[in-house]
Design a binder for these strands. Structure first.
Lengths: 220, 220
DNA sequence: ACTCAATCTGAAGACAACCTGAAGCGATTC
DNA sequence: GAATCGCTTCAGGTTGTCTTCAGATTGAGT
């Protein structure tokens, strides 16, 4: 999780950076508008903490510039100006949050967590749905608490479904992911593997995978 | 842009709703946890404004429940409790913003805009109209929250109507898109499929598709 | 290097879902 | 009230999918 801190006052900047690092964020500290834009152009960040008063320009202008050129990273504004108008202006220019000084480190961290959570579509290590538990790290699968042995192909297939449950996945989309590009369209490998997955997972009789004729399959 | 307001105090609730409507949002006002969950299950909202003290439970528990069951709509908490701990708790339970009472309507609107803006980048994949929800990515269809199975022809037909709802679509325009150019004009395939779509979608009795004699059909 | 087991692959028949055309009935227009 | 257009139902035909099985391939252990 990478955070960019744009803050010209050295002591506050270092304090923020240290607090972030302690919470296992990767924090980058810059002091000017120019440095900030350069850093942003170079690598993507998950959250940006932006102070408004900067030596070479106004933070609000910088923000407007970013939004106009398509940067959509979540921005949290940090400011000593706490009039209502300032807050409104910041939010309408594309800020995602506005924290008036003075603030507690705890609250800043909570708000960063809130912003980051939304952004990252939550990189979970365990997928769970419809009684199926799939551990991405351990590569294990449990159905209703009981372990199930899957071969690597079967596992890859299930993972695609678990990460897209509810959606109807076209056959070509699935085969592209599992058999790379060298997939012969005339073969019925996918049918065979769907049959096996069903046999191993649908133990209690009720269907987990729905067939959509002419299109593909759906994990309900 | 749809906003769900969960607020039990009637005067404040109406005030919020009116303010939102004046800014051209579609606002729904509910007063209890149960009503809120029901509304959310039925249709998706772009932003949810949640008061913490509700007659039938705590807003924070409600929020936790939602997040655990996969609702990821942006939530803005509205609360008289403005201790730091409350704010932190709310944000870490999955709230996207926290606005202490008393607040100005202007600021609430600015924060809602900020939340909605972020959300709206992904929105184009779902068409919604007349109680029908059509997910273009997942290729799924829901009517009043309930999933409906459609064959590929039926789905293609519905998609045309959803992307042109309100318009009167000539029969030839529809058949050209679905049966390509090799469509025999003497057949009544379109009639057959319209009949099937109606049977599957018009469950509650009221007509969704209007026939325009001699011309075509219209999704109201 | 060899053996053995597990997994992967391709083919074929059975099966079921969907598509299609026709026919009878109902509704609307003139 | 006749004619046209649209609605609904049904059965045959087509096509996609399911299942099984045997041969090929891979990988681990000796």
């Amino acid at each position: 999780m990478k955070v960019l801190v744009v803050e010209d006052e050295r002591r506050l900047g270092e304090f923020l950076k240290q607090g972030l690092v302690e919470c296992r964020y990767t924090a980058t500290l810059v002091r000017t508008c120019k440095e900030a834009s350069d850093a942003l152009a170079e690598t993507p960040f998950d959250v940006i903490v932006l102070d408004l008063s900067l030596p070479d320009g106004d933070g609000l202008n910088l923000l407007r510039q970013w939004r106009e050129s398509g940067f959509n990273e979540p921005v949290l504004i940090l400011s000593a100006r706490d009039s209502l108008e300032d807050r409104l202006k910041g939010l309408d220019l594309g800020a995602d949050d506005y924290l008036p000084k003075p603030f507690s480190m705890e609250e800043l961290l909570a708000r960063i967590r809130s912003l980051a959570r939304r952004q990252s579509t939550v990189k979970l290590t365990v997928l769970e749905h419809a009684g199926i538990r799939l551990d991405l790290v351990g590569r294990t699968v449990h159905v209703n608490g009981k372990p199930v042995d899957l071969t690597s192909r079967e596992y890859a297939l299930l993972e695609i479904f678990m990460q897209n449950h509810g959606r109807i996945l076209p056959r070509t989309l699935i085969t592209d992911k599992i058999w790379a590009s060298s997939y012969d369209v005339d073969t019925n490998l996918l049918d065979v593997y769907m049959s096996r997955l069903r046999a191993k997972l649908e133990t209690n009789g009720k269907a987990l995978f729905k067939t959509v004729r002419g299109v593909g399959y759906q994990l309900i």
